[in-house]
C-alpha cells in the first residue's frame, strides 16, 4: 500500500533549517493498522501529512499503491486525496455552519456526486457511526465524541483505501475515545488501511503495529 524510501523533510525557519524528517524508510501493508508514536516534534505529524499528500518530501520517494506520488502535480495529488485517502483530525475540523449530514456530504459535493446519492451515502455513513438521529444537528449542538464520529463518517464516505488519523482521541474523554477507536478498528477489519498518530499508549494498543519516532526518524517498532 505504502512504501517510503529515505524520505526527508526540511523546513526553513528564517535562516535556520529544521529537519522534521531525517530519512524515513517504511512499508505499510494494505489492510494493516499502524500507530505512530513519539514525543511532540518527533516528526510523526509531518510524516502523516506526507502520507496524506498534504505535504511533499524534500527528498526521497513515496510510492502509494505502487505509484510514485512524490512528484505528481498538485491537481493529481488532490484527486488521490479525494478518492483514496480519508483524514481524521484532533480538532475535528467540521464546518460549523453545516449540519452533521452537510459535513459528511462535503467531500462528495466537490467530487460532483449528485444530490440524492449524496444524501443517501451521508445518511448511511452517519448510521455506521450511530448518529442517524443527530444528522440535522450542527457541530455546536454535538458532544466532542459525536463530532469526531461525524468527522470519521466524513473521512470514509468517499470509500478511501487509507485512513489517516492525527491524534483522533486527543480532545476526547476516555469513553468517547474508546468508541472512536472501536469504530476505527471496525473499519480496519473491513479492509481499510489505517495509520494513526498518537502519544497515548492505550490508544496505540489498538494498532497491530506500533512505530516509535524520535528526531525525525523511526527508532523502534513493536508493541509495548
Amino acid at each position: 500500500m505504502i512504501r517510503l524510501e529515505n524520505v526527508t523533510r526540511v523546513y526553513r525557519l528564517g535562516d535556520a533549517e529544521v529537519q522534521a524528517l531525517a530519512g524515513v524508510s517504511l512499508t505499510i501493508a494494505e489492510g494493516s493498522f499502524t500507530a505512530l508514536m513519539g514525543p511532540s516534534g518527533s516528526g510523526k505529524s509531518t510524516l502523516l501529512h506526507i502520507l496524506g499528500l498534504l505535504d511533499r518530501p524534500t527528498d526521497g520517494r513515496y510510492f502509494l499503491q505502487g505509484q510514485d506520488v512524490g512528484d505528481l502535480p498538485d491537481a493529481q495529488r488532490t484527486l488521490l486525496r479525494r478518492h483514496t485517502i480519508g483524514f481524521v483530525f484532533q480538532f475535528f475540523h467540521l464546518l460549523p455552519r453545516l449540519s452533521a449530514r452537510g459535513n459528511v456530504e462535503l467531500p462528495m459535493l466537490f467530487a460532483g456526486v449528485p444530490s440524492e446519492e449524496r444524501k443517501e451515502r451521508a445518511m448511511a455513513a452517519l448510521a455506521a457511526v450511530g448518529l442517524t438521529h443527530r444528522a440535522s444537528h450542527r457541530p455546536d449542538q454535538l458532544s466532542g465524541g459525536e463530532r469526531q464520529r461525524v468527522a470519521l463518517a466524513r473521512a470514509v464516505v468517499m470509500r478511501p483505501k487509507l485512513l489517516l488519523a492525527d491524534e483522533p482521541t486527543g480532545n476526547l474523554d476516555r469513553v468517547s475515545a474508546g468508541e472512536i477507536m472501536e469504530l476505527i478498528t471496525g473499519l480496519n477489519r473491513q479492509g481499510l488501511t489505517v495509520v494513526l498518530v498518537t502519544h497515548d499508549p492505550a490508544i496505540a494498543a489498538y494498532a497491530e503495529r506500533v512505530l516509535r519516532m524520535a528526531d525525525g526518524q523511526i527508532v523502534g517498532e513493536g508493541k509495548l
Binding site: 488532490t78 486525496r81 479525494r82 485517502i85 483524514f87 475540523h93 466537490f110
Partner: peptide, 13 residues
C-alpha cells in the same frame, strides 16, 4: 482552517 480541510478532503485549488 475550513480551506485547509476542504483541501484535505480533495477539493481542488
Amino acid at each position: 482552517r475550513e480551506i485547509g480541510l476542504l483541501k484535505a478532503v480533495g477539493v481542488t485549488q
